[in-house]
Computed example of a mutant assay.
Amino acid sequence: MKRLVTVFMLLAHSANAQTVIEGDNTVISLGNAPTAESRTRASASSAAQAVMRGLDKLAGASEDIILTTGESTDFGALTITMKDCRYPKGNPSGDAFVNLEITDSKTGKSAFEGWMVASSPALHAMDHPRYDVWAIRCKLDDRTPSVVAGESSPLPLMRPEGLGGN
């Protein structure tokens, strides 16, 4: 291991090593080796409210849930508390990160605690047999609509009368 560190240090200090900083990007190249690039993450801003969507898998009903920081609400047997909602600074319609604490009021156990990412709901998802909750976006004020173009309706789709069923 010590030998590997020594070799890396020699490569890093060789005449072929070059570090270029361009704006928010840092590019490191070592001779003919592939370049390594790092990007500085944009800073985040906090919003006072978050929009989540809840799904009752048994009833097939979904509902938009709007919470203010520190507020709790019940969704079926779940109690959802929103701790924080962050979005990229200067881009309120950008990717939202919502910090939630969700407990099952029937069992008293935690169903989820942590950050949910709106663009990747499966990245850190809640695992519950009946309910599903995921982050949609941060909401900056009361004028921000809860459903915008490109998203599904908060109401479940209904079949027209006389088609397939009841």
Rank of each mutant, 00 (worst) to 15 (best):
L78K: 01
S105D: 14
D104I: 04
G60K: 01
G76D: 10
K83A: 11
G70C: 02
A47M: 08
G90T: 08
L55R: 10
G94M: 02
M82T: 03
L67C: 09
M52L: 15
A50D: 00
D64P: 05
S105Y: 03
M52S: 13
S38T: 10
T40H: 07
V51A: 01
S72Y: 07
T107I: 02
M82N: 05
T40S: 07
N91S: 10
A61Q: 15
T73N: 08
D84G: 00
S38C: 06
A47E: 04
I66N: 11
P92E: 10
S105K: 14
D74R: 11
T81M: 03
D104Y: 06
T68E: 11
A77C: 11
N91P: 06
G94R: 00
N99K: 13
S43K: 07
L78A: 08
T107F: 03
P92N: 13
T103F: 01
A44Q: 14
T68V: 02
A42M: 09
F97P: 02
M52E: 15
Q49N: 15
T68Q: 05
M82K: 05
G54T: 00
T81G: 03
F75G: 01
I65T: 04
Q49A: 13
A77T: 15
A50Y: 00
L100C: 12
I80Y: 05
L55I: 10
F97R: 09
S110W: 01
T81H: 00
T68W: 05
S62L: 09
D104E: 15
A96Y: 02
T103A: 10
R39G: 05
Q49E: 15
S93I: 06
T81R: 05
S45Y: 05
K109G: 13
L78G: 00
S93H: 07
T103L: 07
A96S: 06
R86I: 12
A48N: 12
D95I: 00
D74F: 07
R86P: 04
E101N: 13
G76A: 05
A61R: 13
A59Q: 13
P88I: 01
E37L: 10
F97T: 10
N91R: 02
R41Q: 12
D64K: 15
G108D: 04
T103D: 09
